[in-house]
Simulated scan of single mutants.
Amino acid sequence: MPKTIQKRGNTSTTTVVEGIINNTDNGDSIEQVKRKVVYKLYRWDEIPEWQKDNEHIISGYVRETNSFKGCLHSLFYVHNESGNVYSHLLPGVFFFFTMVLNKYGITIYSTTSIVDYLMIDLFFFGAFCCLILSSLFHCFKSHSLKVATLGNKLDYLGIVILIVTSMISIMYFGFFDNPLFFYFFSSLTFLFGGACATVSLKDHFRSREWRPYRAGLFVAFGLSAILPILAGTFYYGIEETFIRIQLKWIILEGFFYIFGAFLYGVRFPEKYVPGSFDIWGHSHQIFHILVVVAAFCHLRGLLSSYEIVHSRL
Rank of each mutant, 00 (worst) to 15 (best):
L191M: 14
G216P: 12
L191S: 11
G254W: 01
F242K: 03
Q246K: 11
F182K: 00
R208L: 15
I258D: 06
L223W: 08
G232W: 05
G232C: 06
S186Y: 01
R206T: 02
E253W: 09
L252M: 14
R211H: 07
L252S: 12
F259I: 02
G260R: 01
L191Q: 03
S186G: 01
A225L: 08
R244E: 04
G237E: 08
K248W: 11
A225E: 06
L227H: 05
G222F: 09
G193F: 07
T233F: 01
P212A: 01
G194I: 15
I226Y: 13
L188Q: 03
L191I: 10
Y235N: 15
Y257Q: 02
L191H: 05
G194W: 10
G232K: 06
G222E: 06
Y236C: 01
I251H: 04
L201I: 04
F192R: 00
L201M: 14
V219S: 06
V219M: 03
R206M: 10
F181C: 11
N178Y: 13
F205G: 13
A215S: 12
Y257D: 00
A225I: 12
R206W: 13
I250V: 15
E209K: 12
K248R: 13
P179L: 05
F185Q: 00
A197M: 06
S187C: 06
A197I: 09
R211P: 02
G216R: 04
G193H: 02
T233A: 03
I245Y: 08
V219Q: 00
F262W: 09
I258N: 03
